[in-house]
Amino acid sequence: MSTLENTHHEEDGVTRRDMIHVGAGVMAGVGAVASLWPFIDQMNPAADTLALASIEIDISQIDTGSAIIVKWRGKPVFIRHRTAEEISEANAVAVADLIDRQTDEERVQAGKEEWLVVMGVCTHLGCVPLGTKTGEEKGDYGGWFCPCHGSHYDTSGRIRKGPAPKNLEVPEYAFLTDTTLKIG
């Protein structure tokens, strides 16, 4: 290296010349970094995966008081058509007493309170809670019961008893029509 530096100092225009080398080096570096992006981005979800990122569900067949499980992004989603009783039960709880404080209002859409849409993944360690299908144990609070470690969820999908730290997650969803629900 010393040989090169000597050459430089012997001659005029040192800075201008150095600029060229630095410029070329920086440009090559920028090019190398920029060309890395495609190799990283290819690991992101591909177009066909993204096309499955949202689903539309016909909810006209779900009777009041029953619920269904649909698969969305590889995980179960519970869609529950709640009875008036279940809704008032969910509203009757004092929020301050809850483990994860949320009102029922925050967990459903205004005007569509009868529909509860939650991820069917227990917030403890990821098991699928029971209580969607007829005859399954619904836990102490009439919602869901996770058989893995005994977490009890209420009719708003909120954690009431057991090791789970959070309420069942509410995914992003919208009603396209009165009978079509879009998740994602």
Binding site: P38, F39, D41, Q42, A46, A47, D48
Partner: peptide
């Protein structure tokens, strides 16, 4: 190789998926 499937029934399809759906797959 992260996207390619070495099985006769799907190898061709997986290459087309790389070309069409994988981000920058066509470039790579």
């Amino acid at each position: 190789a992260m996207h390619y499937a070495a099985t006769t029934g799907v190898a061709f399809d997986s290459v087309e998926r790389i070309m069409r759906d994988v981000n920058y797959g066509w470039l790579i």
